[in-house]
């Protein structure tokens, strides 16, 4: 627990996801072509990591990343996460990591956070930071579920946050309102793209990232029946890309004015210009 003015023990939950912008449907099946997928750090988790770094810059402390992974992510992504400011990265392999079952993910993540805090880092977390959601499933459940599993207060959709002594003050963006809240640490905070703009890491941080510890836990080692407790609740029956019904007509012409006139005529005949 944080003493007044003391350093923060921060855990950031990180998901290594499919890069959805580079994911294409398999032409034969319309299912996502995961065999050719590229991977990335979930964008909102980059915001979470950036926010952790900013808090560390102000208050001091240590930041560790925790990630549930189906298989070992590309090493360059691990290096990037470390270069962005993690002091250590813990990987928890689990076959269901990519299933999108938030109950399984959150239960194992929470057990891993407890284990890492108690056994490896010997701290109790002041802050657990998560992205609001992940770009692949866009589910938004893992943060609040982990908080529930750890028994700490969740502060979701935070767009600004700061810590004063043992109190966290955060601005949450809830639909049309800004909800300013405070809570006593520890807390779990979820953040998104409005929260900050993650900076690019320094070249030397990238080249030296491999010297920072990457610890691979096993779910079996998490104990207290974490695996048994994390039985699947959801079954993914199928994923397909619906066909697009757009006309995809290119409007060309002799210079901008001609193009504009043709487009206006077309929209008028479609009845889209009601004037």
């Amino acid at each position: 627990m944080t003493e007044a003015g003391s350093e923060l023990a921060i855990a950031v939950c990180i998901k290594f996801t499919v890069d959805v912008n580079r994911l294409r449907p398999d032409p034969a099946t319309a299912a996502p072509d995961l065999g050719h997928a590229h991977y990335r750090i979930n964008d909102f988790d980059e915001n979470a990591l950036e926010e952790a770094v900013r808090l560390k810059e102000r208050h001091g402390g240590r930041i560790v990343g925790v990630s549930l992974v189906e298989r070992e992510p590309p090493r360059e992504l691990l290096l990037r996460a470390l270069a962005a400011g993690l002091d250590a990265l813990y990987l928890v392999p689990h076959a269901a990591a990519a299933s999108g079952d938030a109950f399984v993910t959150a239960t194992i993540l929470a057990a891993a956070l407890e284990e890492i805090g108690a056994v490896y880092e010997m701290v109790s977390w002041d802050l657990v930071l998560c992205g609001d959601a992940s770009c692949d499933t866009y589910d938004g459940q893992v943060g609040p579920r982990v908080a529930e599993a750890l028994g700490i207060v969740p502060i979701t959709y935070a767009t600004r946050l700061d810590v004063r002594d043992d109190t966290i003050v955060a601005e949450r963006t809830i639909e049309d309102y800004v909800h300013v809240v405070e809570a006593t640490l520890p807390a779990l905070v979820t953040v998104g793209s409005e929260t900050n703009k993650p900076r690019l890491p320094h070249l030397r941080q990238i080249m030296d990232a491999g010297r920072k510890p990457i610890v691979r836990l096993t779910t079996a080692g998490l104990g207290r029946g974490a695996l048994d407790r994390a039985r699947a609740t959801l079954e993914l029956l199928g994923v397909t890309a619906p066909p697009s019904a757009r006309r995809r007509m290119v409007v060309g012409g002799n210079g901008p004015d001609d193009v504009a006139r043709k487009l206006v005529r077309q929209l008028q005949s479609d009845g889209e210009l009601t004037q």
């Binding site: 590309p74 090493r75 360059e76 992504l77 691990l78 290096l79 990037r80 270069a83 690019l200 890491p201 070249l203 990238i206 080249m207 990232a209 491999g210």
Partner: peptide
């Protein structure tokens, strides 16, 4: 190497952004 790939990504993001 993974370091080179991470470096490549840094340079690409710098260039594009």
């Amino acid at each position: 190497t993974p370091e080179q790939k991470a470096l490549q990504k840094l340079a690409r993001e710098f260039a594009q952004d």
